[in-house]
């Protein structure tokens, strides 16, 4: 565990940054351009009921559904590519190329396909989080040492044994780092999806506040989105610690 003293430096940095922000915002005095942190906090309190009961659940639903789908699809594709060389050859280049497509620019098409349902937002989230999960898991499956593979072969291991007893455990740390990137991206994906058309959600709410020149109202849901991202990463870290308990602890 980290000592409490380790937290002093980041805490002070955040404190002074907020202080500076507060000072500058008050100096400018135009809260629709730069609301002060205290104003944002006040807004958050003021809107707490609607934010926590309507918009946060809507966004969480998109994030969780999207993450589950892309984890399923991503690990599935990674395992399939690892299993079969032709599949790897067919999919891997496509996967890389797919990342050059600006997903965000592509997002409006999902509204055409799925309408204003949850699925247009989920599609954006999946598209944006699929890549880190797939590539990391695949690299992880490939990371197992060839010496270990040979050793297992001398014990008459079959392809299945090698997968379950060697490749899968070796890939777990890689999978988790992919997942950590994916959960942060999923928040972005959900927010962007909501911009394009939604009736609820933190991204949608933030944008609506913008049209009303409510600076603090724009920031309040963004603070919540950031908190969602942080909690998701912490959740993954916890999961990682629990499943990879064998790792050397410093």
């Amino acid at each position: 565990m980290r000592h409490w003293k380790d937290w002093i430096a980041p805490f002070l940095l955040v404190f002074f940054a907020l202080l500076a922000w507060e000072g500058i915002a008050r100096f400018i005095g135009m809260s629709f351009i730069l609301p002060a942190p205290t104003e944002v906090a006040a807004k958050l309190w003021e809107l707490k009921v609607i934010l926590f009961t309507v918009h946060l659940p809507a966004t969480l639903q998109v994030i969780i559904t999207g993450l589950m789908l892309s984890t399923l699809l991503g690990t599935g594709l990674a395992v399939w590519m690892n299993w079969s060389k032709p599949v790897e050859k067919a999919f891997y280049p496509l996967l890389i190329v797919s990342q050059t497509i600006p997903v965000i620019a592509l997002a409006p098409i999902f509204v055409l396909w799925f309408g204003y349902t949850i699925w247009s937002k989920v599609a954006v989230t999946v598209l944006i989080t699929f890549f880190p999960i797939t590539v990391n898991t695949f690299d992880g499956l490939r990371s197992s040492s060839s010496q270990l593979r040979q050793l297992l072969l001398t014990m008459e291991a079959g392809r299945r044994d090698i997968f379950f007893k060697l490749e899968l455990p070796s890939s777990l740390p890689y999978f988790y780092s992919g997942l950590k990137v994916a959960v942060t991206l999923s928040v972005i994906g959900a927010a962007i999806g909501e911009w394009l058309g939604a009736q609820a959600g933190l991204g949608y709410f933030s944008r609506r506040m913008m049209t009303q020149f409510d600076g603090a109202g724009v920031f309040a849901p963004i603070v919540l989105l950031a908190l969602v991202g942080i909690s998701l990463v912490l959740l993954v870290v916890l999961l990682e610690k629990m499943t990879l308990h064998w790792r050397k602890t410093e």
Binding site: L148, L151, L153, T154, E156, L166
Partner: peptide, 14 residues
């Protein structure tokens, strides 16, 4: 394969 016991140079424990 699987007929003799093999102990590799590096312990190669999982």
């Amino acid at each position: 394969l699987g007929k003799v016991g093999y102990m590799p140079q590096h312990d190669l424990l999982l």
